[in-house]
């Protein structure tokens, strides 16, 4: 053990990265473009997350919302909810933050090749899925249909209006969006996200569904997918939990025997079925 310990890489020291772009998305959400020192690549997979440090304020896990194909640099979409995220919203271009990661298991993009991709996102769940959506768009020939279902509380909380606009106008993307509470200008779908699922015509064997949203959403989306008879093995979900270390030690993110920061946050539904605390 003597020789080993010295060589073990330190797990808890972040690298100092720089914010190079900030954009206010909604009232409580902003996105940040982050550059690592010497423009290094983060080398992440879609669906992975980083631990963001603001010294004096703490550390929080934040999922990466850009595709690795758009490196160097990466995007974080941050909702103002806690100690760290509140401070992060006050930071501007040039501010420096600490980054550890990428951590966790992302989406298994190799397995998705040649498939129809069904993205189902609720609220800020679109952030981690955007990483995968961009990836499939950048490698468009590797994938077959791209269907995006997105549900927001109200039109003002729609997360990436620019991107959604772009996706809507692309011929090779099927974009469906719904809001729970419409405003006077809203002309689109009204209702919860599950209302978008029944009308879809899917090639069941060849469709991969990826689901990310608030905790309450999963059960209902699953019911709707099951009603469609989409095979369980074709469903993937990303789960949120409290995290401190990101390296499988602190215990906060554990769902039964699974450390979300190691095995997750993306799980095949077949695994989630074994985890009773999952959804």
């Amino acid at each position: 053990m003597e020789n080993v310990a010295r060589e073990i890489k330190d797990l808890y020291t972040p690298v100092i990265a720089t914010i190079s772009l900030v954009e206010q998305l909604t009232l409580s959400e902003k996105r940040f473009w982050i550059k690592l020192p010497r423009n290094q690549k983060l080398n992440h997979h879609p669906g992975q997350f980083v631990e963001v440090s603001i010294f004096g304020f703490g550390e929080a896990p934040i999922s990466i919302s850009s595709s690795p194909t758009r490196a160097p640099g990466f995007e974080l979409t941050v909702r103002r909810t806690g100690r760290l995220t509140e401070k992060m919203h006050q930071l501007g271009v040039g501010s420096q933050i600490g980054i550890r990661g990428p951590f966790g298991n992302g989406f298994d993009v190799q397995r998705f090749k040649g498939k129809d991709m069904l993205f189902i996102a609720g609220g800020i769940g679109l952030a981690p899925l955007k990483s995968l959506i961009e990836y499939t768009l950048d490698k468009r020939h590797d994938f077959n249909r791209l269907i995006i279902l997105y549900g927001a509380k109200n039109p003002s909380e729609i997360l990436y209006p620019q991107e959604i606009n772009e996706w809507t106008y692309r011929d090779d993307v099927e974009m469906h969006i719904t809001v729970d509470r419409p405003d006077a200008q809203w002309k689109g779908n009204v209702g919860v996200i599950t209302t978008l699922i029944p009308p879809l015509e899917l090639d069941l064997e060849n469709t991969i569904a990826t689901v990310v949203g608030p905790p309450v959403m999963y059960k209902f989306v699953l019911m709707a997918l099951k009603a469609k008879r989409l095979p369980d093995v074709n469903i993937y979900m990303s789960l949120e939990r409290r995290m401190k270390c990101g390296v499988g030690k602190c215990g906060h993110c554990q769902i039964n025997d699974s450390y979300v920061c190691q095995e997750g946050p993306v799980y095949p539904y077949t695994r989630i079925k074994e985890l009773k605390e999952a959804i």
């Binding site: 010294f55 004096g56 304020f57 703490g58 401190k244 270390c245 030690k249 602190c250 215990g251 906060h252």
Partner: peptide, 26 residues
Amino acid sequence: CYCFDVFDEVNLNIKEGTRERTWDSC
């Protein structure tokens, strides 16, 4: 047991600080 919590604490001068970890309990 080895679960832990992590938090930042700053010195009185608000110029330096430390990131601390303490034993935690599930």
